[in-house]
Amino acid sequence: MIQIEKLTKRFDQTHGIFDVSFRVEPGTVFGFIGPNGAGKSTTIRHLMGLLHADSGKATVMGHDCWKETETVKALVGYLPGEINYPQDMTGEEVIRLTRRLHVTSAERERQLLDVFAFDTGLKVRKMSKGMKQKLAIVTCFMKDVPVYVLDEPTSGLDPLMQVRLVDWVLAEKAAGKAILMSSHHFPEMEKTCDRAALIRDGRMIIEEEMAELKRRSKKTYRIGMKDETAAIKLSEQIGTREQTFVTVSLSTSEELNGLIELLARHDIASLTSGTDELEHMFMQYYGEAT
Rank of each mutant, 00 (worst) to 15 (best):
M181T: 05
Y78G: 01
G224A: 10
E93T: 04
L150M: 07
R108M: 09
P35W: 11
V246A: 08
R265Y: 03
G39L: 05
G176N: 12
R265C: 07
T69H: 14
T104V: 14
L165W: 06
D88N: 14
T229V: 09
Q237E: 15
T139K: 04
M225G: 01
V103E: 15
L165A: 05
D114L: 08
I83N: 03
F186R: 06
L113S: 02
A136F: 03
K177E: 07
K177F: 06
P146W: 10
E277K: 02
A117M: 07
L7V: 02
G34S: 10
T229L: 12
S155A: 14
R96Y: 10
K132C: 05
P153S: 07
D119P: 01
V20M: 07
R203W: 02
G224K: 09
E93K: 08
I4D: 05
K123G: 00
D12A: 03
I17Y: 04
A136W: 03
Q87V: 10
F118P: 00
D194M: 10
L113M: 14
S128V: 04
T28D: 07
N257K: 15
K143L: 02
A230T: 05
L75V: 01
E5M: 04
Y286P: 00
A269L: 14
V163Q: 15
G49Q: 13
M189E: 12
R23D: 13
S235M: 08
A38N: 08
T98N: 12
E277R: 07
R100P: 00
